[in-house]
């Protein structure tokens, strides 16, 4: 019986590992960020747009804005396409087509972010600088918020679609049939019955996609331009938080406060993403339990 006890102990501690890891990541980032937070005030760090590490100005506002712009652009582009696609897959598509599309979506979800970034550089960036931006009389390299938004939108499509299809499929057929029997058109059935029933799940799917977009690093930094200025239009370059970390974190410069501000940036990113993904996960879990 002693053996059983040892096994039990080992597997129990393995089970506790994720809990401890979560706490460890949070506390280590907080500890590393504390020096700069106590040196400058939180509002200055977050809302100041002066980024001159050599002179001791550490305003993260341009980076935060860059993250927001890119994420929101991606979301606006991706959400409608994803929802419509999942409606097609759940309600209209014949079984054969679904069988072809499912592996395609899996592949799209599994492609590494470098591949998406490369695709952005090869196709999206030149398209923007040659054709799209001149239409709005804006001339630049094409490395812009819009480019990053398009690439990110494509990246989060499969996440949103997969969950949405699942949610739409879980709407009871009887409900839809009842509406059909009352003379509703297919559109009315989907819009007034299926989507109404599935709305919380669809929102959660979108929120999950949004949190994915927030933290994406490599693909975004390959096409966004990485200029630490407050962006003004979709065609201007930006410098999101993950890109800031990826470009600067490894080479701890000997500027005082520099490593601490980077850790603070990581903490900020972590907190934003955590809040988002937690809310949507909790929401989804609660829905699952109810059904």
């Amino acid at each position: 019986m002693k053996k059983e006890k040892v096994r039990r102990l080992i597997s129990a501690s393995a089970m506790l590992f994720p809990l401890l890891l979560t706490v460890a990541i949070l506390t280590s980032l907080v500890l590393k960020a504390l020096p700069i937070i106590s040196l400058k005030s939180l509002p200055t760090l977050i809302f100041s747009s002066a980024w001159q590490p050599q002179k001791g100005h550490f305003g993260l506002w341009p980076f935060i804005l860059g993250t927001l712009w890119v994420t929101i652009t991606a979301f606006i582009l991706a959400a409608p396409v994803a929802i419509f696609t999942s409606i097609y897959l759940a309600e209209y598509a014949p079984g054969k087509l679904k069988k072809i599309l499912a592996p395609g979506l899996d592949l799209l979800a599994g492609l590494p972010s470098v591949i998406y970034g490369l695709w952005g550089i090869l196709l999206i960036v030149p398209f923007i600088s040659k054709y799209l931006a001149p239409l709005f009389s804006s001339y630049g390299s094409g490395y812009s918020i819009l480019a990053a938004g398009i690439v990110l939108a494509v990246m989060i499509l499969p996440t949103i679609i997969n969950i949405s299809v699942e949610v739409l499929n879980s709407v009871p057929t009887e409900l839809k049939e009842a509406a059909l029997a009352l003379g509703a058109t297919k559109f009315e059935v989907i819009y007034y019955v299926a989507m109404k029933k599935a709305r919380p799940g669809l929102i959660a799917a979108c929120a999950l996609g949004l949190s994915r977009a927030f933290g994406e690093t490599i693909a975004v930094m390959m096409v966004v331009g990485n200029v630490p200025e407050v962006p003004h239009t979709l065609f201007s370059p930006a410098y999101p938080l993950p890109a800031l970390l990826a470009n600067n974190y490894g080479e701890m410069l000997s500027i005082p406060g520099y490593d601490s501000i980077l850790n603070f940036a990581a903490l900020l990113l972590l907190l934003i993403v955590l809040i988002f993904s937690l809310m949507s996960r909790l929401y989804l879990n609660r829905l699952k339990r109810r059904s």
Partner: peptide, 14 residues
């Protein structure tokens, strides 16, 4: 679920 949501760049930092 929490860990799943953490971006990989943050894991890199950690």
């Amino acid at each position: 679920d929490v860990l799943w949501g953490i971006p990989s760049i943050v894991y890199g930092v950690f």
